[in-house]
Amino acid sequence: MPDLEKLRALAKETISRDDIKCLIGWRPGTYGYRTSPHFVRSPEDADQLIFSPLCSSNLATYLTLAEKRPVPRGAQPDTRKVAILVKGCDSRAVVQQVAEQGIKREAVYVIGCPCEGIIDLRKLEDKYPHTLERVEARWENGKISLDLPGGRAVFPREEIVAGKCLTCRYPNPVIADVTVGEDVEVRGSAGFEDINWLEVKNAQERWAFWRDKVNSCLRCYSCRNVCPMCYCEECILEKQNPAWIQRSVNISENTAFQLARAFHLAGRCIECGECERVCPVEIPLTHLNRKLVKEVSEQFAFTPGVDPEAKPLLVGYRPNDKEDFIL
């Protein structure tokens, strides 16, 4: 658990540098367990920074979201670096963005925050619904403690963290210019227990599972918008000419949208789980991503978001790639 004072001091020092225009971190949200992204532009802003098991959002999304406003004639674009706080999974997003040239490595200053797991707010809200007062949380000896209105509560990590954290193999940032706090133990298994149960069902059962889930998709596109790897200027799944997918919300278009979204992340998904976290109708989207993570790992021994020099998976091949499915 990083010392907040140290984190804020580091942030102040960082934002005071001439070559850094902004620092992206987390701050407490307006109520309850919520936290918000925090854009630090001056040393004073840094006082609000936090890092806790409630800091769920993957801030790497903002790196590619930055709008490129027209530069007035004669003026120069602001090319100073952006500093960013990253958890392990978030750092993989940064690496993958660098690997596929979404951002330049020298354009970011990465502040690594080793992470022991992020609270799944749905699990917490099941236990303590309608909490309005601000709640603070911290990691303590492999457990997570919360200062709830009714007093302090301590949970075993496994009981309360998000599913993605249980399978996480990269709790420590894979790149960082500077790290806050000590590296933590890797607890996630390399297996795919989280999806094996679904894989072993037959096709009808699998479809029945997905049909119910995807049927409720609102096509709000939150899953895509929050994804740090989805940063096309114009998403082909929303284009009308040509229209890959129609705008109507029904099982056909919803399924096609979710399949296309998952496929576009093949060999690119860094398992931050943001898509599933923000889904308002609780579609288990990470299952789709994890299935592809599994295939990518097993068939091609490839892990995205760990090596900024690595060639993306689907731009290459090996002559001996598996082809037992080909007639």
């Binding site: 496929f263 789709l288 592809l292």
Partner: peptide, 10 residues
């Protein structure tokens, strides 16, 4: 190879 697995999975 990947699209096939994905379709199969759903």
């Amino acid at each position: 190879a990947l699209m096939r697995e994905l379709l199969n999975f759903v």
